[in-house]
Structures are given as C-alpha cells and as structure tokens.
C-alpha cells in the first residue's frame, strides 16, 4: 500500500506541474491580449473631484466614491480580530520576547522611536487628503509602534475589556454612524454633503488610524488581551 500511495503522489505531482505550466502560459497569453489603452475610471473620477472634499484622488475613491467598499473592509479587519480571538490561543512568551524585555538598548530605542512613529502616523493620516497617505498608511505605522511596544513588553496588557474594545471598534463605529446618519439628512447611504465632506473624511480617517493601528498590533499578539493579562499576572505572582 505504501508503494501505491507514493505512486499516486508522484502522478499527482507530475500532473500538477504540467497543469501549472500550461495554466501559467495561458495566463501569460491572456495578459498579452489585454487592451493597451487606458479603459479605467480615471476620466470619470477627475470631474467629480471638487465634490469629494479632498484633493487626493485615491482618498476620494476610498473614502467617498467607493466608501462603501472601505466600510466593509474595515468590517473585515474588525472581523479578523474577533475571529482570531475566537480561536482563544494560549498566550505564550517566546524566547525572543524575554530577550527583548531584558535588553535595555531596545527599551531605550523603543522609547525614542514610538513617539516619532506616532507623529509620523498622524502626519500620514492628515496628508492623506491631498497626497499619498491616509488612514491605512498611518494605521500601519501605529501598528508598527504597537508591535515594538509589545515586543519590548513595555505596555502592560489591559485587564479591563471596555476601553480597549472601544478603541478597536471606534473607527468602524464612526464610519457606520456617518454612513447611516446621512439617511437622516435625506441623503443616500454614505452621501456626505459636499461642504462637510472634508471634515467628515478627516474625522473618520483619524479614528480609523487609531483603530487600524491597534487592530493590527493585536492581530500580531493573537490572543485576547484581557485573558492574556490575567494569565500574565498569575504567572508573575507565581
């Protein structure tokens, strides 16, 4: 039986390789057949930019023209943190973590870097309305700062759930509130009044930066903070 299994595996592998090559070539052929002239929506976006409230077209698309997609995407991020927590992984302290915690150089560096990173994050978010940048970029930097802090074990894990969870859900919550609130004004879903568009987008982006950064950092942690905190305290007491 063992031999048979191997033969099966071998044949599977051969078929897989052949198919991958044929498929890849087919895709290449398809790529060459794609139209060379621009067919995209750039021409549609440009005339509406003044109504979008921002001057960076990517931000306009993300937060205004196709804001619905972005709302759902923030939902995916929130879902990811809930999904990871639902796995209820056991908190572990890796060797790296201990090493980091015991190295004073890193701790110093982190103290130095984190404020700068947060400043950069703020700048990226703010500049997003006119140039490259925005909540995602800013959030990613916040997340980097968070990961550094976690690795250096410089923040105690929170034991109370409410504050942390509020921060996590805040960006999504505001976005959703704005989206639904527009209905009250007699507008469509997520239809900002043009004169308020800038301020609304900026507010959403600011809260999103915090939420995204925190979410990414906690995704890195992978465990439910309050559960981990309880365990950590228990270990420390022992």
């Amino acid at each position: 039986m063992r031999g048979r299994a191997n033969i099966t595996q071998l044949w599977t592998r051969v078929i897989l390789v052949v198919c991958s090559v044929v498929f890849g070539l087919g895709l290449v052929w398809t790529a060459l057949a794609l139209p060379q002239e621009a067919t995209g929506l750039a021409r549609v976006v440009k005339p509406r930019m003044p109504e979008s409230g921002v001057t960076n077209p990517v931000t306009a698309v993300l937060l205004n023209f196709r804001g619905y997609d972005t709302l759902l995407e923030i939902g995916v991020l929130l879902l990811a943190i809930i999904a990871v927590w639902s796995l209820r992984l056991a908190p572990t302290r890796t060797a790296l973590e201990r090493f980091m915690a015991e190295t004073p150089v890193l701790a110093y560096l982190v103290r130095l870097l984190v404020p700068v990173m947060l400043l950069v994050a703020g700048y990226l978010t703010w500049i997003g309305s006119s140039r490259a940048g925005g909540a995602f970029q800013g959030g990613a930097v916040v997340a980097g700062a968070g990961v550094l802090l976690l690795l250096a074990a410089m923040v105690p894990l929170p034991r109370r759930r409410r504050l942390l969870r509020s921060l996590l859900v805040m960006g999504f919550g505001l976005f959703l509130a704005v989206a639904g609130g527009m209905l009250l004004l007699g507008n469509n879903l997520l239809e900002y009044p043009p004169e308020r568009a800038y301020i609304l987008i900026l507010a959403i982006e600011t809260l999103l930066t915090v939420s995204i950064g925190l979410t990414l950092a906690l995704l890195f942690l992978g465990v439910i903070p309050e559960v981990a905190a309880i365990q950590q305290r228990r270990e420390d007491n022992v």
């Binding site: 995209g40 750039a42 976006v45 440009k46 077209p57 990517v58 698309v61 990811a80 995602f136 990414l216």
Partner: peptide
C-alpha cells in the same frame, strides 16, 4: 496621464483583506 485611482483603492482594500486573512 495621471494614474487611475480606482485600482489603487482596490489594491489598498485588497491588502487589508489579505492582512486580515493572513492574520487569521
């Protein structure tokens, strides 16, 4: 011409989705 912003937005969205899936 200036680049089409819609694919950029799609990619940003795609990255976030991809990060979420990878994390999970």
């Amino acid at each position: 011409a200036p680049p089409d912003p819609v694919p950029h937005a799609m990619v940003l969205t795609g990255i976030v989705v991809s990060v979420s899936f990878t994390a999970f």
